[in-house]
Amino acid sequence: MDFHTAAKYASLLSKDYAEDIFRLLVNYQAISASEVATRLNLHIKTAQDFLESLEGLGIVSKEEVLEKKRPYYRYVLKQTRLTIDIDLDQVKREPTQSSLSSHIREREGAGARFTVARNEDYITSVTIWTGKGRDMEERKIKLTTPQGRFLYHLPFPKAEPLTIDEIMQKAGIDESLAPEILDMVQLLEKYNVIESVPQV
């Protein structure tokens, strides 16, 4: 299950009336939105939206019923066990050789403020300005110690750029920590603090 689907599950399950609706679904062979709404004293739109969302996730199925009045849907529970299973490895950023060999340095005029640790050679946080004009806001990014050590050894603007791998070696950072370094590099690239310098 991907994060997006899991978030939808979690959002539905967190509703106050979720357990009551599931109780009705599991005990009734089929039930309509208006029956749920009147049974639980909910607005029909609330019941309808909830059941439609369950249908979208494949937890219930719906069948159209035609009576004298206009057609409506009856919902039938398809499964009695819900499992949220997320594989976190799918969001892990595995470093590739190309990502580690990218040449980087601090961007000139980045306008970022770096806070240095008092007793160690690393940077504890970077403060940057985001937004434009009157919407500009200060944002402080706290760094892990390996990230701080990496940033401490990042080449200055206009200095000869180094590869991420070389900077990690200079800073004495273990290769296993590459994912968190790459994450920080990508973030600071996004905020124009770090620039990638293409090599000819």
């Binding site: 970022a112 240095v116 603007p157 206009k158």
Partner: peptide, 11 residues
């Protein structure tokens, strides 16, 4: 000449 000022320390 070339500026390139940063508030970071340099090893």
């Amino acid at each position: 000449i070339g500026n390139g000022y940063t508030s970071r320390p340099r090893p």
